[in-house]
Structure formats: C-alpha cells, structure tokens
C-alpha cells in the first residue's frame, strides 16, 4: 500500500510541476514524471507476491503463481503513446524557442484572453 501511495505522490509532484513551472522544458519533464508514476502504478497492480514471468516455458508446464501480464501489455502501449506525445511536445518547444528566443512561458504570450 505504501508503494501505491508513493506512486500517487509522484503523480502529484508531476502535476505540481506542470502547474507551477514557467519553463517549457520543465513542464515537459513534469508531464513525463506524471506518466512514469502511472507506469509504476500499472506494474504494481499486476504484481503478485512470488510471481514468475507470465510466459509458457515448456508445453504444459504452467508456473503456480505468475504476475498479471495485462497491465504490462497496457503499459507498453502507454509508453509508446508517451513517446509520441513527448516527441511532439519537444518539437513544438524547439520551434517556439526559435520564434521567441526563450523557453520562459511569460515571454511567450501571443495569445492572451
């Protein structure tokens, strides 16, 4: 249970970072932290004490306890999605840097109101 709570704290740390930081790159890092906390959370959901990898080694020989493979498959997909999001965010941040010569949010203010 402690691990779940720490995951949640990590999620909140990321959320705090997204809201308070004023640097584009730091915002992206904070978003990534949120994402990693969820990855950890999913892996924890699938964990079974003393569980083995959920792979059939020989025909018919099923290990007695295996970890839940479904969250692992899910999180692999979520990592791929996170990769795409982060790459796109970074690409846009770099282009913004070239237009404004700054990563500071308060300097990037073409849209107000």
């Amino acid at each position: 249970m402690v691990l779940f709570i720490m995951c949640f704290i990590l999620f909140l740390v990321g959320l705090y970072g997204v809201i308070t930081r004023r640097n584009l790159i730091k915002i992206i890092i904070a978003l990534s932290i949120m994402e990693y906390s969820l990855n950890l959370f999913f892996i924890l959901i699938g964990y079974r004490k003393g569980g083995e990898i959920p792979i059939l080694k020989d025909a018919g020989a099923v290990p007695p306890v295996v970890v839940d493979p479904l969250p692992q498959a899910m999180i692999l997909t979520a990592i791929v999605i996170g990769l795409a999001t982060t790459a796109l965010l970074l690409a846009i941040a770099i282009r913004l840097y070239r237009k404004y010569k700054t990563f500071d949010v308060s300097g990037i203010n073409a849209l107000k109101g």
Binding site: F11, I27, L31, A78, T85, L89, A93, K99, Y100, A110
Partner: peptide, 28 residues
C-alpha cells in the same frame, strides 16, 4: 507553424496530456 499556432498547440498538448493521464489513471 506560426507563433500563435505553436503556442496554442503547446497549451492544448499540456492540458490534453494532463487529461489523458487522468483518464489513464482512472482506467488503472
């Protein structure tokens, strides 16, 4: 890729990203 469009997209991505992560958390 003009100034306004990039900025709008960045804002949209950050807020949309938070939304997506909330949804993923909820699903978990």
């Amino acid at each position: 890729i003009k100034k306004e469009e990039l900025e709008a997209s960045f804002k949209y991505q950050v807020l949309g990203g938070i939304g997506s992560l909330f949804i993923l958390f909820g699903i978990g």
